[in-house]
Simulated assay, not measured.
Amino acid sequence: MENSLKEEFLRSQFEKEKNNAFSLFDLEKFSLQHLKKAGVEEAELDARLLLQEAFSLDTKDYLLLKREPIARGESMNSGQFYDDLERNVPFSLALYFSFLEKRIARVPLSQILGRQEFFGLSFFVNENVLSPRQDTECIIERILEEEKYRKRQDDPMLCRKEKDVNGEEGRRAGIEEGDNLSVLDLCTGSGCIGLTLAKNLKCKTMLLLDKSGKALEVAKENYRRIFLEQKETIKTVVGDGFEERRKEASVYFLESDLFESLPLFMEEHGISGFDLLVSNPPYIKRDVIETLDAEVSLHEPVLALDGGKDGLDFYRRIAKEGKHFLLPGARVYVEIGYDQGARVKDIFQKEGFFYVEVFQDYEGRDRGVRGTFL
């Protein structure tokens, strides 16, 4: 298929006798028919974004220049037209058609561009991780909202009360607003949840954990990109862990099948427990994966999708095993499928979590479950 779309486009332009000139608008029109035929839902947007990327244009410049000719020659023969084109815009045009062919094959746009926006940050992504989704941003917002208002002592959802030595109720030390938190991000993938929290909360410890070493390499790269300018020192830890230190916060990366390697890692690094556990685990039913959109079923890692026969395997393990690594008063937040709220809530309640609640995303669909470990 190499160069076939490119050559088809060039022939079509020459046949129109356009004085050897074409525009970005011509490229866009040509692309739309192929993208729509391939079943790409947002064909117009995707074509524009790929053109902007290939020709290094922002949206404003693209809209201003899209109807301007970007190749012109004196001769009307196809060979001369092709030669002129190759001399003027060879790299950008070849790059665009390589992008277009991938998108027609339903490679996700984010993988082609190598990035995805999430909560105001740009994350590097590739075929080894799920692309961050806007739906997941509601998990971040819920956590930030609760941490902001943790001083409200009358709300048991937001703070835990204990009796002091005189029998008076008081809030547990270490959870005041602004305190440094210890956070565990399970199944971190690109690191979008954990690193976004590290950017928006005062964290003493942030541990990004994933079973896939390739996924952790993506998360490490995102840490470097997002925090590079703020880092003061960098330190690598010998062994399975990887640490980089930014001011008072320590960010760790650990390859582990959920909690398997966690006890030894915590002992080696003096981590007594976590105030927050957050996860977007695999939650798709195994026999449903092949029915998903081609972008997901063909191009995103099955390891990050497969939640077992009923899609709930990881929630059972997180609820049962995770509580052994939480500090008193710790909060757990997990992303869920739109139809899993009641069942995931029941799993956490049966494992002894309190104030378990299902919450919704921006479209009003069940998207997360939170609970408190007392």
Rank of each mutant, 00 (worst) to 15 (best):
C187S: 13
F353M: 09
P132C: 09
R152G: 03
R370M: 12
E177V: 11
I104S: 04
Q13K: 14
N3L: 14
D240H: 13
K18V: 08
E147Q: 11
A215G: 11
R172K: 13
S122C: 06
E295W: 08
L264H: 10
G167K: 07
S12R: 12
F325S: 03
E295I: 05
L10F: 15
F259K: 02
V356R: 03
H269W: 05
D83V: 11
K37A: 13
A294T: 02
C192N: 15
E147I: 02
R224H: 10
L264E: 12
P301T: 11
H269L: 06
G189N: 13
D313A: 12
R87C: 01
G213E: 15
L186E: 10
K16V: 05
E229I: 09
L207R: 01
L63M: 14
V288M: 08
L181A: 01
L27F: 11
I140N: 11
G194P: 09
S78M: 14
G174E: 02
R171W: 09
L158Q: 12
S31A: 09
D84C: 11
S212N: 11
V296G: 06
K231C: 06
D257Q: 10
F14P: 00
R367D: 01
E127Y: 02
K323E: 02
Q52S: 06
E229L: 12
R245M: 10
E2V: 12
L109F: 04
E217M: 13
F325W: 03
D257R: 08
L305E: 05
